[in-house]
């Protein structure tokens, strides 16, 4: 992939939730960049802050959550300095977002055609006739058969996969520069997931938009992304291009995650998987030092006391670890 100019630059983002029981640092100093036309995979398990990070970019964080620090530079301007009105214009036109559950994002009492048309009319100066034409074009673009007929259907008449296509059509309606996909294929069946991923790849190639691809599924990232950020407890622990992350994972967490997924290649079925021990720490009681140290097989005294910095260990490959894993990852996957 050729180096292109930076589209989105998230710097030291901190989004905290101030609850009755204490402060949850959902996103705690995340930094990442997305160039034009790049697909960045943001992976992690529940509670790693990946969804809150995306909501922070859109400024859709709701109380008790609050962005307390950081910059979100989009096309050279800090989104955190925008007024709510300016943000509203950016959302849906320059940055679009699709979610896991398309049913809750679609209004059940309007036809899908109406809803896409509305999105177009809000952001673009088009006549109703033109908007309708554009809507049908979009429905065709996302692979919905018989778009003229589907235009008049209600969300409940469509299957989960079709609804997700409608959401993508709506997201694509204003040719966004950045598409945020938050677990958009998680609720779908494998064969339908394959269709949607293919569609997203295809649209990305055709339009050159950038995608922030958020998921818990490492395999999807391997397939979709150019670069990958692995998040754990609100911090990025490893960051690099997709080959670095999957072929030479250096953080013990990334390494452990990749090893613990059952592989389709291995002959050693019915044997124990190399699982990561323990579980994600309680957000109210983060361990001192490196947050991964209680589960890490390589943890030392230093890891229990100090939080390592995200440091570059080879060009473009950043790891937050005092004792990066040295082995190449060949046996797995």
């Amino acid at each position: 992939m050729e180096r292109e100019e930076t589209l989105l630059d998230v710097r030291n983002l901190k989004t905290y939730f101030f609850t009755d029981d204490g402060v949850v640092k959902a996103v705690d100093g995340m930094s990442f960049t997305i160039r034009k036309g790049e697909v960045l995979g943001l992976v992690g398990e529940s509670g790693c802050g990946k969804s809150v990070a995306s909501l922070s970019i859109m400024q859709l964080v709701e109380p008790p959550g609050k962005i307390v620090e950081g910059e979100i530079i989009f096309k050279g301007e800090d989104l955190l300095k925008k007024t709510p009105e300016q943000m509203r214009k950016i959302r849906g036109s320059e940055i679009a977002m699709i979610f896991q559950e398309p049913m809750t994002s679609l209004n059940p009492v309007y036809t899908i055609g109406n809803q896409i048309m509305e999105a177009i009319l809000i952001h673009q100066d088009l006549s109703e006739e033109e908007a309708k034409k554009r809507t049908i074009e979009l429905l065709r673009l996302v692979g919905i058969p018989e778009p003229e007929r589907r235009f008049n259907q209600y969300p409940h008449e469509l299957s989960g996969g079709m609804r997700q296509r409608v959401m993508i059509a709506m997201a694509m309606s204003c040719n966004p520069d950045l598409l945020i996909s938050d677990e958009a294929t998680t609720a779908l069946d494998v064969t339908i997931q394959a269709q949607i991923l293919e569609l997203m790849k295809d649209l990305q190639r055709k339009t050159g938009m950038a995608i922030l691809f958020i998921t818990h599924d490492l395999a999807l990232v391997a397939e979709m992304a150019h670069s990958v950020a692995v998040a754990y407890t609100g911090k990025i622990v490893e960051y690099g291009d997709v080959y670095q992350i999957f072929k030479k994972p250096r953080h013990p967490y990334t390494y452990g995650l990749l090893s613990s997924v059952p592989s389709l290649k291995t002959e050693k079925t019915k044997t124990p998987l190399p699982a990561i021990e323990g579980m994600v720490p309680n957000p109210y009681k983060m361990p001192s030092g490196c947050h991964f140290n209680p589960r890490c097989p390589f943890a030392t005294e230093r890891c229990r006391k100090e939080m390592p910095e995200l440091a570059e260990i080879e060009p473009g490959h950043l790891v937050r670890c005092f004792h990066p894993v040295a082995v190449e990852k060949e046996a797995v996957s």
Binding site: M279, P281, R295
Partner: peptide, 12 residues
């Protein structure tokens, strides 16, 4: 591999 109770982290 034996599943050891002690390895389940104290979170309660």
């Amino acid at each position: 591999m034996a599943v050891e109770a002690t390895k389940i982290e104290e979170v309660l």
